[in-house]
């Protein structure tokens, strides 16, 4: 599928050696929206939760300390910037690196919470994110081997997809799904959301939503079914 029908008219490129970021209305829109959300998250403060408990009249105030707040805000900003970068990159390997950065920062955002079951869920998510670096980079490597290039421009101009390219695209999709924690891995992320510190937790969710849109676009470029 050609780039113009996916993202609109090409407005320009940002050449960084072999890695060329491309700007179309679609990608620019997503880039700017992610940056706006990152800014909102950067200037906001965390929520405080009150946890009731069954069987007693006690309740706990669950708040976020200042140091934890600072660490989480830093990681949330990095996560937002990585998501924004993944929106406009025009290189397959560059995209996978952005995804890996999002994955590790997501684990970091929840790693400092003080709720045991949230930490358990974050641990499971971290394991998935680590396993997923295999299909993620493996998929990119298989695409490189079968096409001889990593540039999405070059891949988009190819006529047809070979079975090995499609297999590479499937592996890449598995890697993206696990690294950002979408559909089958919701359970771990739903547990992670139970911790206080709402805006910083939300960037985990937001990044996966945006990344999945971009990943589907890249899959359409690779697989050429339409």
């Amino acid at each position: 599928m050609d780039l113009a029908s996916l993202g609109g008219e090409l407005l320009g490129t940002i050449p960084l050696g072999d890695i060329v970021l491309y700007l179309t209305p679609f990608h620019l829109f997503m880039f700017v929206v992610v940056l706006i959300f990152t800014f909102l998250i950067a200037i906001s403060r965390t929520e405080t939760q009150i946890e009731g408990s069954f069987g007693t009249l006690k309740d706990h105030k669950v708040s976020v300390g200042l140091e934890e707040f600072k660490a989480r805000r830093f990681l949330a900003i990095i996560c937002g910037l990585a998501t924004a970068g993944a929106m406009i990159t025009g290189d397959l390997f560059n995209f996978t690196l952005f995804i890996a950065l999002i994955g590790i920062v997501n684990v970091g955002i929840v790693s400092a919470v003080k709720q045991v079951d949230v930490l358990d869920a974050a641990y499971q998510y971290g394991i998935i994110a680590m396993i997923c670096s295999l299909p993620l980079f493996g998929g990119a490597a298989i695409v490189l081997a079968s096409t001889g290039t990593l540039s999405l421009f070059e891949i988009a101009s190819m006529a047809s997809a070979t079975p090995m390219m499609i297999f590479g695209a499937i592996l890449l999709m598995i890697g993206v799904a696990g690294e950002t924690g979408i559909a089958p891995f919701f359970a771990t992320k739903a547990e992670m959301f139970r911790t206080p510190g709402s805006p910083f937790i939300l960037i985990i969710h937001l990044s996966s939503l945006f990344v999945i849109i971009r990943a589907i676009e890249i899959l359409l470029i690779l697989v050429k079914v339409i």
């Binding site: 394991i127 396993i131 359970a187």
Partner: peptide, 10 residues
């Protein structure tokens, strides 16, 4: 829905 099982299944 149990996070413990997800990595094994995956």
């Amino acid at each position: 829905a149990n996070p413990d099982r997800i990595p094994k299944l995956f």
